[in-house]
Design a protein around this nucleic acid. Sequence first.
DNA 1: GAGGCAAACGCAAAATATTTGCTTTATGAA
DNA 2: TTCATAAAGCAAATATTTTGCGTTTGCCTC
Lengths: 186, 186
Amino acid sequence: MPIKEAVRPGGRSARVQEAVHQAVRELQAVTPRDELTVPRIAERAGVTPSTIYRRWGNLSELVADVSVERMRPDDDPVDTGALAGDLQVWGEQYLEEMTSVPGQRALNDVMASADGGRRERCYRYSESLMGTLRERALARGEGAPSVVQLIDGIIAPMTYRLLYDPEAATVDNLRRWIAGTLTNEK
Amino acid sequence: MPIKEAVRPGGRSARVQEAVHQAVRELQAVTPRDELTVPRIAERAGVTPSTIYRRWGNLSELVADVSVERMRPDDDPVDTGALAGDLQVWGEQYLEEMTSVPGQRALNDVMASADGGRRERCYRYSESLMGTLRERALARGEGAPSVVQLIDGIIAPMTYRLLYDPEAATVDNLRRWIAGTLTNEK
DNA sequence: GAGGCAAACGCAAAATATTTGCTTTATGAA
DNA sequence: TTCATAAAGCAAATATTTTGCGTTTGCCTC
């Protein structure tokens, strides 16, 4: 039942979580999706299957839990000196990651999770990133659209394409979305 | 393995498919999600579980198959006499349907499917709908954005909110997306 | 730093679900 | 009608998930 993060961060519990996550990552790298099973993960992690079932509930939730980490922006976005450039550079890297085979799988895994909180977390990442870039632009004296406008104008179409029509998740389209959003800035 | 539509549309095969779909719909209406199982569906449909496994592969694909039907636009969109109105009326109805509990579940089920074709199909629905409304507007002598612009400006942010932040999938925001998209029309 | 409480884990049996080989049925074409 | 074959049924073999219970281990209080 408890799908949430470790309530008890210390020692063993954390070790188990890390071992299981690690096992998932390793197996994902060498195993077709339909051979990725809870018992196999458990064995590799040196843990009982029941531990995994009690903690994560099922395979989908577990892999979603692992995949959502991939989505966390790793470090501070590069500063190109202009908002348009910052968005383009970040977006290109993000697109490259998410159109890759493992990236698409991670995206799928997160979407497959029944726990909506997982997706909301991705949303928060984007929101916070857009906030950062916007603040940076304002500090430079540039004008900048609101965070909501950035999300509607750039994140949303990009994500929509990644999910529904990956062929169209291209760098060129990204440029278009950025340009369209920045020219209407208020 | 064969996840695709019935290769043999006649008789028994079609009857089985319909019975199974029907059983899924009925059970979904009265059953918590984690009690919806393949054997139970099979029993209700008067079919062997192995039939379901062979035809759909697993539960996720089956429910995705059923849910994607919910998404098909049922009839011709109402004609309000102006593009903005057409979009607003259609969008409000769509939002209402997709923010409901069964609607959100259907959305989830489709997203959980490993078969990307299912999502692409939803995309085609939207594309075709936007095409219809656009043609209608042009025929009236109105200006209208391209289909791509309509998708990027309206469908994408709406879908993004439905998936990542349903609280923000509101009629007011819809109005904003429509207005923003139509004023930049070229 | 000694107890005590409860969360989390391990183990193994029981309950379910899934896969598979083989047989039977029924459709569409000759 | 007959034939060839895709799809369904059946049942045994596997694999998985769930569950009850005993044990370990953080964490908190005194």
